[in-house]
């Protein structure tokens, strides 16, 4: 179907494309090992976050948490904010985003274009500064509504009800699903659905490993694990550094013509690891992974050109996923 009543109706149903050139070669006579990319940049605002944003708003409306004209307050480093801004605009809400100032300028411009207001938490002050900023906002505006993507079950449910079924329909032979680990919503929702339907499927997480500047933690007890996270859904979890993420992001566009953001490069890195394991063990594999967004929003980082060392320097201290 290619005709929709409104932009929100065009959500999901994204293409799943094979990657014949990036899939590892197998010895003659060995079972095939294939990589498949789910192009989530084909969603209305260009990222996978359109799914949870729409589901979270719809559920808040149905439960009465959100009423017409309300202000939504959401901490986000980018794509969720952009997706929420679009949904809020079409459904009649005001959106205020709290975000760290070390995200790419395109994200900020996009948010403002969609009509969102932004409150920055200083990057240099680390998390304690962000905490102070957020506490202040909450105290000043007790009537603002939070959807809180890190703990909102509608975030995971969006993927349980859409991403998972789409993958199963397009790739019934799926053996592995690989996605990024942030709020954990994609992996929890899609992972639960696929585990119910596909025996032996492996759910694999790729998490970005930033330079330490970005974490800004003073001690271990300041760490945070999203409420949505349930480790039993995962089979493997990879930490992917900036260099590997950039290398794979460049390979995606150079080898397969897919222009993606850096988190997708990190996801491909993990997908290749499980694909190579399958080749080594002589096992058949259909590895589906997520292209979370396109590369447009990250061009200003300069990390698509120059040497890998240049790119690493360019992304130092940035939230690239």
């Amino acid at each position: 179907m290619a005709r929709y009543e409104s932009l929100l109706d065009a959500l999901g149903g994204t293409p799943l494309v094979g990657l014949p050139r990036l899939s590892p070669a197998v010895p003659e006579g060995a079972p095939p090992v294939r990589l498949w990319a789910k192009l989530e940049d084909h969603n209305p605002t260009g990222s996978i976050k359109d799914r949870p944003a729409f589901f979270m708003v719809r559920e808040a409306e149905e439960s009465g948490h959100l009423r017409p004209g309300d202000t939504i307050l959401e901490p986000t480093s980018g794509n969720t904010g952009i997706a929420l801004a679009m949904v809020a605009k079409l459904r009649g809400y005001r959106l205020v985003c709290v975000m760290p100032e070390n995200v790419s300028s395109e994200r900020v411009q996009l948010l403002r274009m969609y009509g969102a207001e932004i409150i920055f938490s200083p990057a240099a002050g680390g998390s304690n500064q962000a905490v102070a900023t957020a506490k202040q906002i909450a105290a000043e505006h007790p009537d603002w509504k939070m959807l809180f993507q890190y703990g909102n079950q509608a975030n995971a449910r969006a993927h349980y009800e859409t991403t998972g079924p789409e993958l199963l329909q397009d790739l019934p032979t799926i053996t592995h699903f690989v996605a990024g680990l942030g709020t954990t919503g994609t992996l929890m929702g899609t992972g639960r659905f696929l585990k119910e339907k596909v025996e032996g499927i492996q759910i694999v997480a790729a998490e970005p490993r930033y330079g330490e500047v970005v974490y800004g933690l003073r001690n271990i007890d300041e760490g945070y694990v999203p409420e949505l996270y349930d480790a039993s859904v995962l089979d493997r979890r990879f930490s992917v550094g900036t260099r590997d993420a950039v290398l794979r992001t460049r390979q995606l566009v150079e080898v397969e013509g897919i222009f993606a953001g850096f988190s997708s490069g990190a996801i491909l890195h993990a997908a290749l690891a499980v694909a190579h394991d399958a080749v080594k063990n002589g096992k058949r594999a259909d590895v589906a992974f997520v292209i979370a967004d396109g590369g447009w929003k990250y061009l200003s980082t300069g990390a698509y050109g120059g040497t890998l060392n240049d790119a690493e320097d360019a992304l130092e201290g940035q939230l690239w996923a």
């Binding site: 760290p100 998390s127 760490g223």
Partner: peptide
């Protein structure tokens, strides 16, 4: 801390 560390802290 997963992606968006400062966002987590703020949240």
């Amino acid at each position: 801390v997963a992606g968006g560390a400062l966002g987590f802290a703020a949240a």
